[in-house]
């Protein structure tokens, strides 16, 4: 079977939010840089282990391959020290990956951001709304990463499948964090 024009996949991942306490962001970026390049606001960066998105000032969303037993938060808190809060959101956010040429054209039907590739270029990340629900969006080399609260995940997926119908959308098997964390 050939690949669909537009493929929607779930992305099983551990997701953490790292938030710097007052004035600690530069220190955090330096400290984090030893293991990870925390990106500037509005960008997504990749490392072999996963992705980091910055859509709020002095906060980062870290998307990692799932770890058994949910130990990621503790490990990251240990790594980054007490100048930040590491909050576990693995179950609170759902991740999707939308790949294919018409992806941006489809999202125009519910997303108010300018998704022109010249504007929301590869490596961009933004928090916004789509189909009336909160979505964090990142442009990766192979497609678009969408994070949405777990409670609205089904709504977002159903909406994507409906607006994508005319563009040949198909639901495909899960993608892995490793597959996406090539340098954007």
């Amino acid at each position: 079977m050939s690949a669909p024009d537009l493929a929607l996949a779930a992305l099983p991942a551990d997701i953490l939010e790292v938030a710097a306490f007052g004035g600690a962001a530069p220190k955090l970026v330096r400290r984090g840089a030893e293991a990870w390049a925390l990106p500037p606001l509005g960008r997504v960066s990749a490392a072999p282990a996963g992705l980091a998105l910055a859509v709020r000032p002095e906060r980062w969303l870290i998307v990692l391959a799932p770890q058994a037993g949910g130990t990621s938060a503790a490990r990251w808190q240990g790594l980054l020290g007490t100048s930040c809060a590491v909050v576990e959101l693995s179950a609170g956010l759902a991740a999707f990956f939308l790949a294919g040429a018409p992806a941006r054209e489809v999202l125009k039907r519910g997303c108010r951001l300018d998704l022109d590739p010249g504007v929301f270029a590869q490596g961009s990340a933004a928090a916004t709304q789509m189909a009336q629900v909160a979505v964090t969006l990142a442009a990766l080399p192979g497609g678009l990463l969408l994070l949405t609260p777990a409670s609205t995940a089904r709504h977002l997926r159903e909406w994507l499948m409906q607006v994508g119908r005319a563009f040949g959308i198909a639901s495909v098997s899960d993608v892995t964090v490793a597959a996406l964390s090539g340098e954007p």
């Binding site: 606001l41 509005g42 859509v55 000032p57 108010r112 951001l113 933004a126 916004t128 709304q129």
Partner: peptide, 10 residues
């Protein structure tokens, strides 16, 4: 100043 120009609805 953080996100760029956005619609009022945000």
């Amino acid at each position: 100043p953080w996100c760029g120009t956005r619609d009022e609805s945000e």
